[in-house]
Design a protein around this nucleic acid. Sequence first.
DNA 1: TTATTTTTTTAGATTTGTCTAAATATATAG
DNA 2: CTATATATTTAGACAAATCTAAAAAAATAA
Lengths: 217, 217
Amino acid sequence: MQSFTEENYLKIIYHLSVNNDQAVQTNAIAEKMQTKAASVTDMIKKLADKKLVLYKKYQGVHLTETGKQAAINIVRKHRLWEVFLVEKLNFKWDEVHDIAEELEHINSAELVERLDEFLSFPKNDPHGDPIPDKHGKFDAVPFTRLSKLKTGEKGLIMGVSEHSSAFLKHLEKLGLTLGKTLTLTTITDFDGSVEIIVEDKKISVTREVAKHILIRI
Amino acid sequence: MQSFTEENYLKIIYHLSVNNDQAVQTNAIAEKMQTKAASVTDMIKKLADKKLVLYKKYQGVHLTETGKQAAINIVRKHRLWEVFLVEKLNFKWDEVHDIAEELEHINSAELVERLDEFLSFPKNDPHGDPIPDKHGKFDAVPFTRLSKLKTGEKGLIMGVSEHSSAFLKHLEKLGLTLGKTLTLTTITDFDGSVEIIVEDKKISVTREVAKHILIRI
DNA sequence: TTATTTTTTTAGATTTGTCTAAATATATAG
DNA sequence: CTATATATTTAGACAAATCTAAAAAAATAA
Ligand SMILES: [Mn+2]
Ligand SMILES: [Mn+2]
Ligand SMILES: [Mn+2]
Ligand SMILES: [Mn+2]
């Protein structure tokens, strides 16, 4: 069994290596963990001793299969708890992340399976992210970003790639929530912002925001 | 904010001092915490620095009002999560304690209040123990023990004072669950075991077991 | 009331996860 | 290919929570 800290390292290494099969760098981990590179090196050695990561000095780390499964299990718990908080306890999608950061470390396989069942085996969390099943399997639905759409194209909002409360609240206010359909009408030349229509309303979205809205055409 | 460890100490000191206004002894804490007296002394000093307990060398500890409220809040969370596990996730009453030991440390006041509401503000946990409200208030319903009943007396099972899985499973098997009504028919002289009738069935219960069954006459 | 037992505290180590500062390796730029 | 910049590791220290062994206080018994 891993400590909370070890679990957080595994999860971060996982997120940094998914969609990218290169080695994860010490500094990248340090930034996400909000700690120092020296501390990361210490922890990496420990995780390597436990065969959870492969490590070569100065060459960054890769998760082993065991490490990857451990990480995915934490992600599974995180996302299931987020669904619970939104669906059952009526939290908003911008309020659940920090609580799930704690709940994801609760250690009971039985609890996770029963929670999954209680929630009717959800496929996605409140931010559109896929929930791995009990074997760690999930399908990565392909997506594009609002910032990549061309004029006139229609799309369905299926997720976000930025999870800060400020960003989510902003989308909420604009009515840009999961499942909404939108049409891109204009791309502004000078700043790349986009005009879209959602539910018959015209909205302007900065390029920075558009980059983080995941779309299925 | 307290660490998990500090919270566990507070909770144990609380349980050892409720129904008993004497100072809680170092060794008593050590036994419950499954640790050594020396470690307890260290922690007591830390809790005293934080004004969560009153401590005089060699004289044991008392919770301060702040410490008591902190402890009660942990107990509240523990019992609410136990209700959740039994009522919503269909765990048995003997399966929930260890998971609740972890969940009780999740740190979000909003979560607790919403969970309480989701559960329809339960007054008691699956073992009959009272759940403090958000202000830490609860009424200690008076009770007696099956071992104190006299021949012919009737009673309602309202709780248990032993929470081990083995004990709870045993009661379950005998059909001695919360809310059941029983009548004491015989007290055996030589070993103090009691014969009772529950739902028209005659059952024999050892004195040791009878001591831990809480009854309202 | 003196001796013995029990309880509690202190002293000094250990483990985990962190830090700063300095050393070393790797990458990048001329 | 060498100089500089960046990334990473090492060395040594620290705080939290624990431990063992020994000392000290309090309780109990003779
Ligand atoms: Mn999240
Ligand atoms: Mn999420
Ligand atoms: Mn319990
Ligand atoms: Mn309980």
